[in-house]
Amino acid sequence: MPKRILTGVVTSDANAQTITVSVERRFKHPLLHKTVRKSKKYRAHDETNQFKVGDQVRIQECAPKSKTKRWEAIAE
């Protein structure tokens, strides 16, 4: 099964080798027919601490690295 890849913005880089990425998705509401924006935060592994707050980053699914980290940042 292929690994999912999401694109988001780094909201925190306070922890060592970890970034928090906010991923936004847009969809049309089934009843109101207006565009709705929803965001979700993911904790991702950043081996070299290269990403800073505000950076656009791609994250990919991986095996669990810790209790909360199931994603890793992809260098572009």
Rank of each mutant, 00 (worst) to 15 (best):
T68N: 12
P30L: 13
Q60T: 05
H45Q: 12
T68A: 05
K69W: 03
C62E: 12
Q56F: 00
V36N: 11
T48R: 15
A75W: 06
V57E: 01
D13F: 00
A44Y: 06
D13K: 08
K69H: 02
K52N: 12
T68P: 06
V23Y: 00
P64G: 07
K34H: 08
K38R: 13
R58G: 01
E76W: 02
K69R: 07
K28F: 14
W71M: 09
Q17Y: 14
T68M: 02
T20L: 13
A16L: 13
P2T: 11
K40R: 14
K38T: 13
R70I: 00
K3N: 12
K38P: 00
L32Q: 10
E72M: 04
I59H: 04
V23C: 00
Q50A: 11
E24S: 09
K34T: 11
R70V: 01
I19L: 11
H45N: 08
Q56W: 04
Q60Y: 01
Q17T: 14
R70Q: 07
K69C: 08
T20A: 02
Q50W: 11
A16R: 05
K69V: 15
K67I: 02
R4H: 07
K67V: 06
L32T: 10
D13I: 03
Q60N: 03
H29R: 07
K28R: 14
A16S: 11
V57Y: 00
K67D: 09
I74M: 10
H33K: 09
T11L: 06
K67S: 04
F51P: 00
P2F: 12
T7K: 01
D55P: 03
R70K: 10
T68S: 12
D55T: 07
S22P: 05
T68L: 10
G54C: 09
R43L: 15
D55K: 03
L31R: 07
V53W: 04
K38I: 15
Q56S: 02
D55M: 02
K65D: 03
D46F: 06
R58D: 04
Q50S: 14
V10P: 02
R70N: 10
G54R: 10
K40I: 04
K69Q: 14
D55Q: 01
V53I: 12
F27A: 12
A63H: 10
L32Y: 15
T35C: 03
I5T: 14
P30W: 15
T35P: 05
A14D: 08
R25N: 09
F51S: 06
K52S: 14
A14I: 07
G54T: 11
R37D: 02
V53P: 02
E72W: 07
L32C: 02
E61M: 10
E72G: 01
